[in-house]
Amino acid sequence: MTTLLDVRDLTVRFGQTRAVDGISFTLDEGETLGLVGESGCGKSTAALALMGLLEAARLDGSASFGGRDLLALDEARMRSIRGAELAMIFQDPATALHPLIRVGDQVAEVLRTHLGSNRREATARALDLFRKVGIAAPEVRLRAYPHEMSGGMCQRVMIAAAIACSPRLLLADEPTTALDVTVQAQILGLLRDLSREFGMAMILITHDLGVVAGMTDRVAVMYAGRIVEAAPTGALFAAPAHPYTVGLLGSVPRLDAGWDDDLATIPGSVQTAADASGCRFAPRCARASNACRTEPALIPTGEGRAVACWHPA
């Protein structure tokens, strides 16, 4: 397996806040990585940084993608990669599609931009893509507007546009969060099938560990802008090492109750406070000790696993 993406010390600053704080990970060709963490931990920011879609942010580190550093490319080079080799789909398919443009045209426009297809070729190919992503009556749907379609259908359209140029990597940012449970399963199944069929690598972003089970090869767990644990999916579920992962998996009842309330109130301050005093999860961690005042690094523990904790489970 060759490495497709090698992210090193990716840091994203909005003014003084570090939304992403030095994360590193690699991804092989065709591999699927789950990026998991609660709301506000920097998952979307990391993905948008790789896409070069963040404005008013300061980026540091490097992200080598097929030999080029995504963070160092100029806008014109980046534009030729975006939507072609590196594609992204978003959380809310209803708002991610342009409300006044026919969905078929929204897919065809990718082909016309990157492959220089003419209108007829692009429409014919869009029809193929609609079939591929399982849209019923694709000939009719090509001419539909987003408001005439369900959320699941809209997400299929987004996926069709994303895979139009057979990208090597698809960033899927909470692609099923806005959808019904049954539709969620269908969309996840579709993504898995497509990534297998085309050997397309994928980063599946979610706050729900349940989603990554059976979907991904590996999982990276983020907390407050950092990766706190990374492991093969099966191993992570079998034996989570970081107390936060343990909490996410719901195996510690104590973390259930005040969980959301805590998160809602802390976000901004948690990072600056943690900057001074070591492990960011310590204030909410049952295992915290004096050692946790020093920030733990993400240390490999063998078998493709790594954890950033002084007291791993």
Binding site: M51, L53, R79, S80, I81, R82, G83, A84, A87, M88, F90, A96, L97, H98, E109, V110, T113, H114, M158, A161
Partner: peptide
Amino acid sequence: RTARAKGLG
């Protein structure tokens, strides 16, 4: 954002 993610000019 989607339009930009598609690589449009």
